[in-house]
């Protein structure tokens, strides 16, 4: 079964690869952009699910970690000449001006910087109870934003960066997405994953079982922060423009929405909801833009998209709190069995 599963996983990866190859050649830029956003959103959702869904730490700081990842990565991939042009408020520090790294290293650095801040922020804050933790981490994200505005020699202040090289193509994004998926699946399936879930279910009992709760919370939080940083880094390169305003609470809200919809503590749920909600978010942009039917113009309704989404979130919390997957996971055995049943029925 183990060997069979490995083969099936490799097959699935190959199918994804073929699809991306096809998409690259046949889909228009807009659709490719949506595919890219799907990959980034899955990374972000998995990272929040690790923190909140699996370890039970209600964190609203995702936008902060994403901002750190995006800024670090952007500084490293913008070339010095570009940076000289960009920093018009105040000249950049020399180390900011001269920092340079290949894309992979830059994304990694973005993730590591976010993880570093994860440890820094988590060490004092993770002692807090769930709702206070949420507010404190939200405070952290806002502090990151204020710092981004007020440190113009590093971040170019409120203007942010423009023309960030678009290295984050389908291949990079999906490579990171698959890596994140692989990482989180392995982690959650290991005994450390059991420990995370134990802490989520009953912290005192976990302590009595010899678990260093604080250490494991910090571990889960900083791993989540790492992938949030990676997601932010990819997003920066993908949209080519970042500024402090972009990393506001809406960004965290979207990720939370995906995680809750998919199911807290379900990796499958985060992936599926990542795909569906990203598409819906883009598709609903239509209602905010004016619509032309012949000569007749239907004015767009700004704000409508988030009205729909916030309403959807409220409905899910009210009527299907466990999300679409609950805590269930996809596995090959399950798929094969159900396929086998169908084949059997056809045969008879």
């Amino acid at each position: 079964m183990q060997a069979q599963r490995t083969i099936l996983n490799l097959l699935a990866a190959a199918v994804l690869g073929l699809f991306l190859w096809w998409a690259e050649g046949h889909l228009d830029g807009y659709k490719i952009q949506i595919l890219n956003l799907i990959a980034v959103n899955i990374i972000l959702a998995l990272s929040l699910n690790l923190i909140y869904g699996f370890t039970g730490m209600f964190s609203l700081g995702h936008a902060g970690f994403m901002a750190i990842g995006a800024y670090v990565c952007s500084v490293l991939i913008l070339d010095p000449a570009q940076k000289e042009m960009l920093f018009i408020l105040e000249p950049a520090y020399t180390w900011v001006q001269q920092a340079q790294a290949p894309f992979f290293v830059a994304v990694m650095a973005g993730g590591l910087a976010a993880a570093f801040f994860g440890v820094l922020v988590g060490a004092p804050l993770l002692r807090l109870g769930d709702d206070y933790l949420g507010m404190a981490t939200l405070g952290f994200a806002e502090i990151v934003r204020v710092l981004a505005i007020n440190l113009p020699r590093v971040t170019n202040g409120a203007l942010g960066f423009k023309g960030i090289p678009g290295h984050a193509n389908l291949w990079w994004n999906y490579a990171w997405c698959v890596f994140t998926l692989f990482f989180v699946v392995r982690l959650v399936a290991s005994n450390s994953g059991n420990v995370f879930k134990a802490i989520r279910d009953d912290e005192s009992a976990a302590k009595a079982m010899g678990i260093d709760v604080f250490r494991h919370k910090l571990l889960s939080f900083s791993l989540g922060a790492f992938f949030a940083g990676v997601g932010g880094a990819l997003l920066g390169s993908l949209v080519a423009t970042i500024d402090p305003k972009m990393f506001n609470f809406v960004l965290t809200f979207n990720v939370l929405m995906i995680v809750v919809t998919g199911g807290l503590g379900s990796i499958t749920g985060s992936v599926v909801a990542g795909v569906v909600i990203t598409i819906l978010l883009e598709w609903l942009r239509v209602v905010e833009n004016p619509l032309f039917i012949g000569d007749w113009e239907l004015p767009g309704i700004p704000g409508m998209r988030m009205v729909v989404f916030s309403l959807a979130l409220i409905c899910i919390i009210l009527f299907r709190r466990e999300g679409f997957m609950g805590k269930r996971e996809f596995n090959w055995g399950w798929l094969l069995r159900s396929l086998g049943n169908k084949a059997g029925r056809h045969g008879s």
């Binding site: 809750v260 988030m306 009205v307 979130l313």
Partner: peptide, 17 residues
């Protein structure tokens, strides 16, 4: 709390609408 966050976004965007 998540419901409250949802309501917050809802009211804000409804006002925009």
């Amino acid at each position: 709390l998540i419901s409250a966050i949802g309501v917050s976004f809802f009211l804000q965007n409804l006002t925009i609408v």
